[in-house]
């Protein structure tokens, strides 16, 4: 439907005029039609990276931004033909919904008939036909973001850049729109770069995720890779929940305050081991209870219970267990850890 363009950043760093280094030199290749999510806490450089791609910021000398084979480093945003969607929508309050969507087409001097046809197409795509003549202040947040998407896509951009588009919306609406954006990006096959601080959003939408930390790329990979094989403690802790035991290795056994964990591949130098809540479970009857602790909190979630177990570590272990059995605060439980989920970082 749209021509998909690969985008690459070569040696792009960004230092602001006050001397702050927002981005260390970064190399990044985004495949044509791929949805790449830039993920990290505020100040990690994800928005700066997006703005470099958009042309809203210039990289420090030596950096290059390429769209397809074309070097666009020197082009300002208005010449790059990118669609942008902002957290605050950035819809023009002096124009109606239809006028907002038509604005980019008007700038491209398309005929009135062409504009009308394209605006109609976009309204239908976002299923907001009945809002065409509304003014912006008559729209809800979700409607505004749909208009913003329609406006950005109307000009057939080379790439769609989304800067925390769902952050201003409430949780339920965020889910609905996340689903819509996902289907939209897949349907259009457009190259998309999506900035968020929400790891659940990142995992749901991204073909690949770039986890960023203090202006550096901490890890790039498919959501599954990043979750299952985090490259660093930082990534492991930022994505999902991670359980941690500290202690020392004794042959194939890791000893810690709460007991021990047997692991044939245990590195001899391990000072701590990590594993996900879903690889943690309550030990079955008769199973060797290698790890013991006391329940410090149990949150009933309907289909399961989220259990926090104190095993003498800095933070309690987290696990999810079927809600059939009730757990009381202070109760002693025996835990087992699945070997395939163990890791050392």
């Amino acid at each position: 439907m749209m021509q998909a363009v690969p985008i690459s950043l070569e040696n792009c760093a960004k230092t602001f005029t006050d001397g702050t280094r927002a981005l260390e030199p970064v190399d990044l290749a985004i495949a044509a039609g791929e949805t790449l999510v830039l993920l990290g806490p505020s100040g990690c450089g994800k928005t700066t990276t997006l703005r470099l791609i958009a042309g809203l910021e210039q990289p420090d000398a030596g950096g290059r931004v390429l769209f397809g084979g074309e070097d666009v480093t020197a082009l300002p945003i208005e010449k790059r033909n990118v669609g942008m969607v902002f957290q605050s929508y950035a819809l023009f309050p002096n124009m109606s919904v239809a006028e907002n969507i038509a604005y980019g087409l008007r700038l491209r001097r398309q005929s009135a008939a062409e504009q009308r046809a394209r605006v109609g197409e976009m309204l239908a795509l976002m299923r907001i036909e009945r809002l065409a003549d509304r003014s912006i202040d008559q729209l809800s947040g979700g409607q505004r973001q749909r208009v913003a998407l329609a406006r950005a896509l109307a000009v057939r951009p080379r790439a769609l850049l989304l800067d925390e588009p769902l952050t201003a919306l409430d949780a339920k609406l965020r889910d609905t729109l996340r689903f819509e954006i996902d289907s939209l990006l897949r349907e259009l096959g457009i190259t998309a770069i999506y900035v968020t601080h929400d790891q659940a959003e990142a995992m749901a939408l991204g073909d690949r995720i770039v986890v960023m930390d203090h202006g550096r790329i901490a890890q790039v990979g498919a959501p599954r890779d990043i979750y299952q094989r985090p490259a660093s403690r930082y990534v492991a802790e930022f994505i999902g929940t991670m359980n941690r035991l500290s202690g020392h290795a004794e042959g194939e056994v890791f000893r810690c305050p709460g007991g021990y964990v047997a692991w044939p591949e245990l590195p001899a130098t391990a000072r701590e081991i990590l594993f996900r809540p879903e690889d943690t479970r309550i030990a079955a009857e008769g199973e060797a209870a290698s790890l013991r602790g006391t329940v410090s909190a149990a949150f009933f979630c309907g289909d399961h219970v989220r259990l926090f177990v104190d095993v003498g570590e800095e933070r309690p272990l987290v696990l999810e267990t079927p809600a059939r059995r009730e757990y009381r605060h202070g109760e002693t439980v025996a835990l087992a850890v699945e070997r395939h989920g163990l890791m050392v970082l």
Partner: peptide
């Protein structure tokens, strides 16, 4: 600033942004 960035992303140069936005 964000309104202007939105207009710029759609292809509006400074003069057009000033006039239209």
């Amino acid at each position: 600033p964000t309104l202007e960035e939105g207009a710029a992303s759609l292809g509006a140069g400074f003069a057009q942004r000033f006039r239209d936005i």
